[in-house]
Design a protein around this nucleic acid. Structure first.
Lengths: 163, 163
DNA sequence: GCAAAATTTGCAACATTATAACATTAGCAA
DNA sequence: TTGCTAATGTTATAATGTTGCAAATTTTGC
């Protein structure tokens, strides 16, 4: 499942990855959590991909690395990374993406392009507060909020205009 | 995966099921869609359960019925029911629940109790419009919006208070 | 330092969820 | 009838995720 589509905006993506890894190391240190080589490598792989990566995609790359890993290795690493807010699981895709707001309190909302597969994570306070209000009206206490919007991104809308 | 927890409010649930089936027949007729026995039975099973039902749960009950069904039978029925807005798939649970707003345009939002497993579907216009605004700011055209809130329902909050 | 305890990883098997591909049957219209 | 389309049956397999236990590694208490 490798791909070629560009991310939303052209940029030096390796810099993103490097920064994300540096942030991750800092966050883990703050929490006395161990960002072991496997965990760090999984995080790196997820960040290197512009699209959410499935657990078995990660597994395949680890295999190319020469790392003879089994599914639990990947799922455990992903659980760890999720726990510290370093990656998010996109439920509607069964896939994982790097958290672009790691460290900050993040009420993520994901815009998922049906065409190119790119995902944009937003922090949308207005959405969060509307969700909380709606939940409160039912006396429901939210613990985890999943907001995933599937649709068409601007780039693909432009590309498809002349269909 | 049978269970015993009550729904949010006590009520004659069989009446809900009957009504849902009647609505479904009407909706399908309007669309010249065929609510075949299998499809109707799947819808009924989903409505009878107070909690979202997995495809294989449905399959198991069909087997009890004496219907020698295979997974594609169930998935096809579920696809059909989703297509006409009669059931929703809860991505975070890999399960299906009856749509309580079938027929109307529905921007569903789901409150999923971690403790009892019950799900409440809400129509929350404020949430929808906040989501649409946030998407518009990114020039993103939403096609399908998934909002699933996992947390603690009022009943379970009361039950757990004395832990 | 060093042994005990806790965390992390390796590994094998297995469980669950979902789809592909193709044959067959049922409903319906000319 | 005949021919078309939609729906279902059937088999196999793909894709995703988990359990349980043993081995290795890291941390902790002394």
């Amino acid at each position: 499942m490798s791909s070629s589509a560009l991310p939303y905006r052209p940029h030096n993506h390796q810099a993103c990855v490097t920064q994300a890894l540096a942030d991750a190391r800092a966050i883990c240190q703050q929490h006395n959590a161990r960002l072991t080589p496997t965990r760090e490598r999984v995080l790196e792989l997820i960040w290197q991909s512009h699209k959410p990566l499935g657990a078995y995609d990660v597994l395949a790359v680890l295999a190319e690395d020469g790392h003879n890993a089994a599914p639990p290795t990947v799922y455990r690493a992903l659980d760890f990374l999720q726990q510290y807010g370093l990656v998010h699981r996109i439920a509607s895709l069964n896939a994982f993406t790097g958290c672009t707001h790691a460290g900050k309190s993040h009420n993520g909302m994901f815009l998922i392009c049906r065409w190119c597969g790119n995902v944009l994570e937003l922090t949308a306070p207005a959405v969060s507060s509307a969700v909380n209000t709606a939940a409160a009206e039912e006396s429901f206490r939210p613990e985890d909020v999943t907001i995933e919007v599937s649709g068409c991104c601007p780039r693909c809308a432009a590309d498809n205009a002349h269909d």
